[in-house]
Nucleic acid binder design. Structure first.
Lengths: 231, 231
DNA sequence: CGGTGACTTGACAGGATTCAACAGAAGTGG
DNA sequence: CCACTTCTGTTGAATCCTGTCAAGTCACCG
């Protein structure tokens, strides 16, 4: 239990809260383990609280009637998810599935709203969180509507590299099929584009290991300045 | 000035606030008129506050390097916009342009944040607003990624009809070119799909007047159950 | 009346998905 | 430990939706 308090205190969403509030949070929270591949909640399900990831990762995604997926978000260590319906509707707008064995904390809606009413910094933290998510979604929309798949893939790689300290050598943290769902396309297309990028000498791909060989060209593709040659 | 107070008191975002708070809001706000076609702010611009529409309409949109537009939102009477960077970054993530002559109220960031810290119901209102927007964006992403253009158009029409009291006869509130930008496509495609829908006897289109002739079929197209015949 | 903007239609090209087949890796169970 | 199944990833061919280019109509306006 002791480490639970310290865990919660280090969750960005709860940063800067007085100890008394952290204490209360631990009291209203319950924990839950989810096996790899299991559904945490489905779109349209009644939502009476939200989650924070303690261990493992969870993907948040939309499903088309034909079964195609669009991943909205992959949440990991100390990140919250499912918080949207806490403040507006009562139902989850998307699905959540564990992509690894996961340990989650669950915060019931009503108790959490009470806490927020009494702590403006918690409210501001939550506002900041939703705002950032809104910006991320704006980016997804921009990508889907205004960029082609090579551009989105190049952006993803550059982004991954920048988060990993600008190293040219990086490792995909997700499978290529899941990557396809993140980019809003299908595995075949991702595979073909990687092949083209290798042919152009932009990257070197070996399984999940990827080496960025030509950042400049990648950035051009990412920004839509230039296209990718067909053959 | 008197009607300004009553206007602000009726803005959903400010609903339920005590008169004292409303009073303060009127003091920190300034107003501004924008001519049709003029830019309110551009993506990446420094943001030191947000707006509420008093009169007219403003479109929020992303621009591709080639000039294609994706409309994220069309904001009208008593709706706020540009509020995202107030809580996270300092820059606007999209562009805002008046599509009609507009009158706007501007709320400076710092003063507004102070107000929020002292009034939890204002904070909750803002949380509800951002949450709803997040759900709308989720819908846009779903449409762009998992549905084709006919499906998006059918959804738009059904949605418009439901907001207008389920009447079968309705009038587009925007031009067809702007509609194309909202749907994430181009005017030519919208034109062709309307033509096909008429050929199928689903709708009757005459300028901006549209009559829904076959709701059932429209719903099938909207949900992706069936496609639209080519010729 | 010339001009601009909104809309429509046709021909065409191209990127991306679909369908299909297959190789390799990983995990299961006897 | 090996056979078997499953999952992931790759490649080819065909198809199709959608965007691009171009031309032309109609309405509105200075």
């Amino acid at each position: 239990m002791k480490n639970l308090v310290s865990f919660i205190g280090n969750v960005p969403l709860f940063k800067g809260l007085p100890d008394a509030q952290l204490e209360r949070l631990t009291h209203i929270a319950t924990s839950k383990t989810i096996k790899r591949g299991k559904i945490v909640f489905s779109e349209g399900a009644e939502a009476n609280g939200f989650y924070v990831v303690v261990r493992g990762r969870v993907k948040i995604y939309k499903l088309s009637p034909e079964g195609k997926e669009q991943v909205l978000h992959i949440v990991g260590f100390s990140e919250p998810f499912g918080e949207v319906p806490v403040f507006s509707g009562g139902r989850f707008p998307a699905n959540a599935q564990a992509i690894e064995e996961a340990l989650l904390m669950f915060f019931p809606r009503s108790a959490f709203v009470e806490l927020i009413q009494n702590d403006s910094s918690l409210a501001l933290n939550m506002l900041a969180l939703l705002s950032k998510r809104l910006m991320q979604f704006t980016g997804i929309i921009e990508g889907l509507s205004l960029k082609d798949v090579p551009s989105r893939l190049a952006s993803y790689l550059l982004d991954l590299s920048s988060r990993g300290g600008e190293s040219s050598s990086l490792e995909l943290d997700i499978s290529k099929s899941l990557l396809a769902d993140v980019l809003g396309t299908i595995p075949e297309t991702v595979s073909r584009i990687f092949a083209r990028m290798m042919a152009e000498g932009m990257v070197d791909v070996e399984g999940r290991r990827i080496v960025l060989l030509n950042r400049k060209k990648l950035k051009e593709v990412a920004s839509g300045t230039v296209g990718l040659q067909l053959k």
